[in-house]
Design a protein around this nucleic acid. Sequence first.
DNA 1: GCGACAG
DNA 2: ATCTTGTCGC
Length: 257
Amino acid sequence: MGGTVSRYPPPVTTPPTRPACWPRTEAEAEAEQQRLRPLVDRRGPGPSVADGGTVAGVDVAYDDRRDLVAAAAVVLDVATLRVVDQATAVSRIAFPYVPGLLAFRELPAVLDALAGLRTAPGLIVCDGYGIAHPRRLGLASHLGLLTGIPCFGVAKTPFTFTHQPPGHHRGDRTALLDGGEDVGRALRTRDGVKPVFVSTGHGVSLDHACAHTLNLTPRHRLPETTRQADSLCRRALAAAVRQGNDPSMFKERGRLC
DNA sequence: GCGACAG
DNA sequence: ATCTTGTCGC
């Protein structure tokens, strides 16, 4: 991968660049989603609390004006939710934001951050959707296929989907529908708080994804993984901006396809 | 045709 | 995502 990878504290050098072999147009990106779509596996349990499993949260922060993106990957112990590893990566923004093509904007930086980890996590939780997507290939499914690591998504808003409001208690859930198709769950993670939207990414079933989500939300609406990754990528972006970015420091990223 | 639309 | 002030509550 490319970009500047670093464990926290933040990068001393600034990195960027779009990966070679990464879609440049919406048409190319959609074609890539169609190619990957049939490879998604919607089954699997993910790591168990018993065997010392780990879960990683990934998130990204942007500075559009400076064309910078900072990604973070934070690994937690599934049983204790303690942080056991973390890494960040800063680079140039590789793709514009287009609803339905979010993966092409976020994943290059996320892969760079994951590459900076000491050990591969047993599961990855994304901010956003997996198969709940117009072409059934949201970023969580895409990342799962690219890494081979079980992955699912937890989104904060319904996107284009519909649902009946779940009961008011933690654990209550209802179907997330794309027309008549069941693509995920509206899951209440805390009593009386807005639900989150869970969908399978790759290598983890929807029921297991919901179970993992509840395990990761002992005290907040959003998973601990997401919260940790969110704050870390913001700090990494601020640090990169503080240091200033020099295009000459941008190095080439490897092939991601 | 005009919005809406994960982050 | 990001821009943005104060405010209510645990």
